[in-house]
């Protein structure tokens, strides 16, 4: 490491130190816009425990999906499609049929409980 190498570095530092760019109007405008936006949106979102819980599991979309899955499960319990009944019988073997509604019902036929 020679003296001239050190002099070169000092010259490079001087060159770098002399760089003092003037911020463009466009940059200042973007920064001003950021200042307004940052104040509108608080840095730490405030909400109830339920809001935090819903956010944690994926928001209202996920809650809607869970609700739909629940309703579908109840519906299959009351009136399972034939394919479900057949599959259960094939897998477990014995099928016991319990009528929950009288025969006059036009919407619900029967519920199969496998055992």
């Amino acid at each position: 490491m020679s003296k001239s190498d050190e002099d070169m570095l000092d010259d490079l530092f001087s060159l770098g130190k002399a760089q003092s760019p003037v911020p463009s109007e466009a940059l200042l405008a973007r920064i001003q816009n950021d200042a307004r936006t940052a104040r509108i949106k608080p840095a730490t979102p405030r909400g109830s425990v339920w809001t935090g819980f819903f956010d944690m599991i994926g928001g209202w979309t996920a809650v809607g999906g869970l609700a739909m899955a629940g309703v579908t499960g109840v519906w299959f319990g009351i009136a399972p499609p034939a394919s479900v009944t057949t599959l259960a019988a094939d897998l477990i073997g014995t099928t016991v049929t319990v009528d929950l509604l009288d025969d006059s019902s036009t919407y619900f036929s029967e519920v199969s409980i496998d055992g």
Partner: peptide, 18 residues
């Protein structure tokens, strides 16, 4: 906000440029 930008952005930009 405008005043802070006027005061601080030139120095911030200079440091980043250097």
């Amino acid at each position: 906000a405008r005043l802070l930008a006027q005061r601080l952005v030139p120095r911030v930009l200079a440091q980043a440029t250097r």
